[in-house]
């Protein structure tokens, strides 16, 4: 085994693993990128059912309703538009009316209500999820005096 041959072997192995990695990344990306959409965008352009997305905004004041079992219905707003969301499960500790929230899921069969599979609020009172800040900025409702500066 000469130095050159060894180098060739290592280079081939390296290329092989690089190729495997690229193939893995590309196939995994195809189904697992979750895009963020704002309530305004959904209101204006609609959202095809079964498309898994992430929405963000504020929980509209007075919109949280307990349904049967542990189902909850609330509205997520970017202060321009709001969309109704249902969720089955325990809401995070920092889920509150008027506070930022991010939900992952898709529009239900009725084409109206967003069915969340995951609801996230953050660990910190003062922290505004970037998506929420983005949604508020996009809808022109961002008021810097009312809170922290947007994180980006």
């Amino acid at each position: 085994m000469t130095r050159k041959r060894r180098r060739l072997h290592v280079a081939l192995l390296g290329l092989l693993s690089l190729g495997t990695a690229t193939a893995l990344v590309l196939t995994a990306f195809e189904d697992n990128l979750v895009f963020f959409v704002s309530p305004t965008k959904i209101a204006e352009e609609g959202l095809e059912p079964d498309r898994y997305v992430r929405i963000g905004g504020l929980v509209e004041e007075g919109s949280v309703q307990q349904l049967e079992g542990n189902r909850v219905l609330f509205r997520v707003t970017d202060l321009a538009h709001a969309i109704p969301v249902t969720y089955d499960g325990i809401l995070p500790d920092l889920f509150r009316e008027g506070q930022g929230v991010v939900a992952q899921g898709s529009i239900g069969a009725d084409g109206e209500i967003f069915v969340a599979r995951e609801v996230l609020a953050r660990h910190d009172e003062n922290y505004m999820p970037a998506e929420v800040a983005e949604a508020l900025q996009a809808s022109g409702q961002w008021r810097p005096e009312s809170g922290q500066p947007p994180p980006r």
């Binding site: 495997t20 990695a21 893995l24 995994a28 697992n32 979750v34 992430r54 992952q104 970037a130």
Partner: peptide, 16 residues
């Protein structure tokens, strides 16, 4: 804005 979820990492990391 996108999020890369756990399935991505499970699909790429585990086979390696």
């Amino acid at each position: 804005l996108v999020t890369v979820g756990p399935p991505f990492f499970n699909l790429t990391f585990v086979p390696l």
